[in-house]
Design a protein around this nucleic acid. Structure first.
Lengths: 335, 335
DNA sequence: TGTTGTCCGTACAACGTTGTACAAAATTGT
DNA sequence: ACAATTTTGTACAACGTTGTACGGACAACA
């Protein structure tokens, strides 16, 4: 409709002249600073509502806080992250903080962090970081930081939230052993700069040894590509493993697919356990046993910690979530 | 490690004094404006690299462009959006533009748009918008806008990218008819403010009539919740439909799950077709026939249009993508 | 009535850029 | 050698906030 009209932005000055006060007074109301009468406050708020004023984040960034936090996700394909996001949203609901996301797709985590710092965001939650402890400390020196999904319990300058991943590995193995499986392999991730997968592997090995199955320990690693996962799964199957514990659900679903293509039946020929208990696990055709690390809870805690930190906390906190097994048909006892 | 050191931000002034020039000169280099000698440019660029300077986006937002665009997604659960994001990333790769995402979870689309405007972003791509044409025109009056997944071919103030959704509906029906199915139902979405689902329904109806199956037209609508989808699917099955065309893949997978739970086999008892051809379709246990609307292509075009618009194009463009059927076992001809 | 505080509201200097206006220097033409 | 022109670099006023400094009004106390 409108060709190229000049849609003037409503500023604090417009509000001030509408309310008949100085622009500084409006600023005071916005920051609810000391030294404004109730009458003035009411008048200003009325004008704000009437004009539909919203503060300019860019201008705020030049001076104090922007009231915006950034959340960085490693990818958008894994529906687990949607749960984390829900948790963060829920925690932000009753606060004045807004949120923007950055998703590591083509760009790098470091570039995204830089970009968000340049926007002067008030704090950052990095989910599934692949950065080193040093890099993260560098970030934390410049703005409040919470890392979700990277075990760094000795970090002093930022907080972390994590699933007890060693426990995940142990639970998976114990469950499969109880169900009667012995030759239990793990299908892991090839390159993992985070410490999450290491711990799952460690938990897996520990439980295998504890069950007297040390000789059956077998960890196969594949990169994230579906093709590679197929190849590695196939080689595990050829080795006649009885069960496969996969580092995340979609890998488990792919493993299931490979087994199916080879004419094998699950769990009779091979049992499968996944991780994250994403929505696809519950579908009848998958019926995938999985470890639930409650992404929602994870996000909630991360946001809570970040806000505390923005508001002044200095001492680091490290929150651990206890995983819970959700058993389904894919790991039922063989008949 | 560091307690509360003052990590001074490196500004244009620091670069200027390092290079021994005025700060305005540095700004000129950054904007590559007219009137800088190659010598000065080189010197400045050297200092920039040496100091690791990056421009402050907030400050840029106060004056010209931020070189950041915003992308708004309706949710993070549907892996289709990951493809769209890939396309956008790819298009931005060789440009100077950065990107941040906003995901409509607890907050509203309008709130996210407002928030991104307040950050003074250079442009916006809204994917799967539920806003009205008027609301979108309002946004477009204030900044360059591209809408992906909302048919508004008469919009003059913003661009759109869409799948030919009527064609999707027609293709799905024609395919099922060819395979020998007659009682073909559609499982649609209950509340759809976008025009995408309407068109799919229209295409479905049109093709049904064209095939002389008008009397078998049956559109069932369910909200996004899994529980509701189950109930609606079950009622379709009780009506003994032979095939179900679902508006998106995860609904199709859920329908498949319901059928399986009822002891039915696919496609013998009921055929299923999904939409978006997401990664889960290819898994053997699903083997779901689906319509591919190439999210990657969609994102690529949206980003291209946005950049053109940021750089001055006024005339609206509307890009249409042609869907392609990927046939799998879920719609094979009954034996 | 003068003095001392409180309270409320205003003035104004940042913040780090962009882009316009202008001065100085270098180059060209005569 | 001197004016005219072009090229190169600098100065500075925005942009919309925050937060500190300050002034004026009014009440309380002597």
């Amino acid at each position: 409709m409108t060709r190229k009209s000049p849609p003037k932005r409503i500023t604090i000055h417009d509000v001030a002249s509408d309310a008949g006060v100085s622009f500084s007074a409006v600023s005071k109301v916005l920051r609810d600073a000391y030294g404004v009468s109730d009458a003035l406050r009411a008048r200003v708020n009325e004008s704000i509502a009437k004009l539909g004023y919203t503060p300019n984040t860019a201008a705020r960034g030049m001076r104090g806080k922007t009231h915006v936090i950034g959340v960085i996700f490693p990818d958008m394909r894994n529906p687990y992250f949607a749960d984390v996001l829900s948790g963060i949203s829920a925690a932000l609901e009753r606060t004045t903080y807004q949120m923007v996301q950055g998703i590591v797709q083509h760009s790098t985590e470091a570039a995204l962090v830089q970009s968000m710092m340049n926007m002067q965001l008030d704090g950052l939650i990095i989910v599934g970081s692949i950065s080193t402890s040093e890099e993260l400390s560098g970030v934390a020196a410049r703005l409040p930081l919470v890392v979700d999904g990277h075990h760094l319990p000795n970090a002093t300058s930022f907080d972390t939230v994590n699933n007890d991943d060693a426990e995940s590995g142990r639970i998976a193995v114990r469950h499969l052993v109880e169900q009667g499986y012995r030759k239990i392999a793990m299908l892991s991730l090839e390159t993992h700069n985070g410490s999450v997968i290491e711990r799952r592997e460690a938990g897996y090995e520990e439980a295998m040894r504890a069950a007297g199955l040390g000789r059956h320990i077998e960890i196969a690693r594949a990169p994230q590509s579906l093709r590679d996962i197929q190849v590695v799964t196939q080689s595990l199957i050829e080795k006649r493993v009885e069960a496969i514990f996969c580092w995340t659900d979609y890998v488990a679903l792919e493993a299931m697919s490979v087994a199916g293509s080879l004419g094998l039946s699950i769990p009779r020929d091979v049992a499968i356990v996944g991780h994250d208990n994403t929505m696809y696990c519950g579908f009848e055709q998958n019926s995938l046993t999985s470890l639930d690390q409650s992404g929602e809870q994870s996000g909630l805690q991360a946001a809570r910690l970040l806000i505390e930190r923005i508001e002044g906390r200095q001492k680091a906190e490290h929150f651990l979530i206890h995983p819970r097994l959700v058993a389904r048909r894919s790991s039922a006892a063989p008949a």
